[in-house]
Nucleic acid binder design. Structure first.
Lengths: 207, 207
DNA sequence: AAAAATAAAAATGTATACAAAAAAATAATC
DNA sequence: GATTATTTTTTTGTATACATTTTTATTTTT
């Protein structure tokens, strides 16, 4: 089941399931080699998480990428993640900072796809948010980061963004290590909003 | 299907499905007079929306009410709804304000349950947010308001809260009519946060 | 020829039946 | 007697089959 979900998500991200045209349960059933029941289960989950949307009264489809949605997703991320980092702050340890630094080093690799970069980026952020001890808020933030992945099936934006993003991560970790919570939160807000703006610009330009 | 979902939600709110003990698909199947397939579909949706949580590797259960979750839900509402009202502001019309005022009058009725009050409260807020033309953000806010309903199966807090809340609604609508967007957003923030604090206090006191 | 009504096809929703996995109960061991 | 191993039972997950709904194609009517 989890495997099927991930396969579907991967195929949605990579555009192997055409956007905008109705998905038929039987076709998916054949395609993934399972009966319609697990397909229906997966569709139910993916609908709830915005990976699929209703198409008429019967049927679902992969939604078109849409700059307004991307803007909202990043705005929500910004608001909620800053709040969450505030909760995390008093509980951040050398261990969690070290773990975050390790992940940031792995983000250095040149041959990472946008998608892999996105996954590592979330791992880094999640490392910081875990210690907040705020399951409900954390869960919502995790869902938002998962949704953002739908927009990461391609390479976008200037290449230098990679380095910018990484430098910001380092700076953020330094601020946290120095106990400058307000500055750190401010930087996080900017970090997310700039990323969102770049994506939105790209989407506006290409559509 | 929608009917079954609403029945399940109502039974969760009213405590007719015991919290903390595992739900069995076959029991639910008998209880609601349908086969296990639609039950499974409904469980999938409710799990995704926080109405049910995993219980071990197999089975789900109704989660206990929890002040920390309530606090997070209201904090998220506060952050996201203020943002959304900002988008709404330029598009608010006399019609939408009038509609909101009508709903607020209906909130006057003395014999409303907490649950009915919650539904009307959302109708009022939704009226203001609809014109924002921000589907993704609106949808998330709607989900949060739906989740808050889980905490409204009982009467809590001082009775005078009802009038306070209504006066705040009126004041909010007046500010919007006068075009004082910043003040309106500030009031909305306070309106939501106070409601959240009252709920959290109640939950802390009773648990 | 265009629009409405009807009939055929296809798709979803649901029930039943079976297989795999998990939980509970029993038996065996230390 | 408590703990571990094994068996039994229960529960979930999936496949197939059927009913209902929706969509498409055809026919009829104006």
């Amino acid at each position: 089941m989890l495997e099927l979900l991930d396969q579907l998500k991967a195929d949605i991200i990579n555009g192997r399931l055409d956007r905008g045209c109705p998905l038929r349960q039987q076709e998916l059933s054949k395609r993934y080699g399972v009966s319609r029941i697990p397909i229906r289960d997966a569709i139910s989950v993916l609908r709830n998480q915005g990976w699929l949307v209703a198409h008429g009264k019967a049927g679902v489809m992969v939604p078109e990428l849409n700059w307004k949605e991307a803007e909202d997703l990043y705005q929500m991320r910004s608001l909620l993640e800053c709040q969450l980092l505030g909760y995390s702050f008093p509980n951040i340890t050398y261990e969690s900072l070290g773990k975050a630094r390790d992940i940031n080093l792995r983000l250095n690799a040149c041959d990472l796809s946008m998608l892999e970069r996105g996954r590592l980026n979330w791992e880094l952020h999640a490392t910081l948010y875990e210690v907040a001890n705020r399951p409900t808020l954390f869960n919502m933030v995790a869902i938002l980061n998962e949704q953002v992945r739908r927009y990461m099936g391609f390479q976008y934006g200037p290449l230098q963004y990679r380095n910018t993003s990484q430098n910001e991560h380092e700076e953020l970790l330094d601020l946290l290590a120095q106990g400058q919570s307000d500055q750190a939160i401010k930087l996080l807000r900017q970090h997310i909003e700039v990323a969102g703006q770049q994506l939105v610009e790209y989407l506006k330009a290409t559509s």
